[in-house]
Design a protein around this nucleic acid. Sequence first.
DNA 1: AGTTAAATCTTTACACTGTTAACATGTCAG
DNA 2: CTGACATGTTAACAGTGTAAAGATTTAACT
Lengths: 197, 197
Amino acid sequence: MSAEPSKPYHHGELRQALINATEQILTERGLEGFSMREAARRAGVSAAAPAHHFGDTRGLLTAVATAGFLELQAALREANTQGGDRTARIQAQARAYIRFGVAHPARFDLMWRCEALNRADPAYLSASVGAFSLLHEVITGVAVSAEQLCDVAKPGIDVRAVAAWSLVHGFTTLARQGNFDPEMPGLMDGVMATLTV
Amino acid sequence: MSAEPSKPYHHGELRQALINATEQILTERGLEGFSMREAARRAGVSAAAPAHHFGDTRGLLTAVATAGFLELQAALREANTQGGDRTARIQAQARAYIRFGVAHPARFDLMWRCEALNRADPAYLSASVGAFSLLHEVITGVAVSAEQLCDVAKPGIDVRAVAAWSLVHGFTTLARQGNFDPEMPGLMDGVMATLTV
DNA sequence: AGTTAAATCTTTACACTGTTAACATGTCAG
DNA sequence: CTGACATGTTAACAGTGTAAAGATTTAACT
């Protein structure tokens, strides 16, 4: 009897369910509206369950941030395939970066909220470095490894890439916080024009 | 008897004491380590006392962020008085901006943590717009008013100022989070060189 | 197959948080 | 002097993260 599954003791895919729930909370309420217990609630599970998969809150948020960087990577890669010369590809990536940050404010915010994350996590590190590497590569022609970005004093990181990254990241961050409207006619184009690489 | 003051019922300068305590916590433990109760504890006062002065946590943090913007304004103004031509003054301000953010990571972080602040607060608004206005003025020759920055769609904000702001803010933010070392030889100079205004 | 180890989830508990309500104390203007 | 008000206090509440101990399922090994 009782043909209904009626919630088995084991969830089965709790890890992914918690990540999904967290992303849902982020888009609905932002990062300040997130809590471990709320994520557990949405996944239909007790408050202590997430600990088995992520250790603590930091672990879950790091996993979500990692997923965000992979998504950003995909967007940058897609921009790269749009063709055009080097300058066109650089600008396309820059626009994709900005578009991502503006479209997913809370997720983008989390990705850089280093105090709330475990930056030593290998997956996070690789995903975040990989995103910057795409920009670095289209500008300099060579990719950048994780070691180069971790041991920051080491040479190998191109100054032009850091400048471009700073410009794009700053524009995205400031726009995301409502300091100006990124869609204001001519604004983004004008800012892009200063991308002298 | 009891010549000792032995803590009078009224603190006297609780408002400022709470702001000081918060800034102390920020430098010691960062924003994640802050709590209203901890600030009250350091000010030697009960947990409910701050509410009379700031309403809620958001109110206290907004006051601290406002103070931060005033400090930033002073740094930018000081950079402006160092003499030199227009380009020199622009670069001096940019360096002062970066120096401030790197020297006071948690405070700088808070200043832009808009979800944790009350952005409608007039003092905060005026202090933050005032800081940008200094950069805007040295670049374009005219200051920018609060209305112009609030009604973002309105013209009046110079694209060159937004680009410079984005570059400097992005560099500061990324460096602050440990993505690279701002003191790496040649890095900051190279990034500054792209400040083509 | 049967038994044991490991993984996954629950319940319970604890210390901490922000905020409110009700009350106490000091200040000050009329 | 006497309210009215600003500024404190205590007590309470709901919500949080996470740790400990027990329950249940899966998996692995003989």
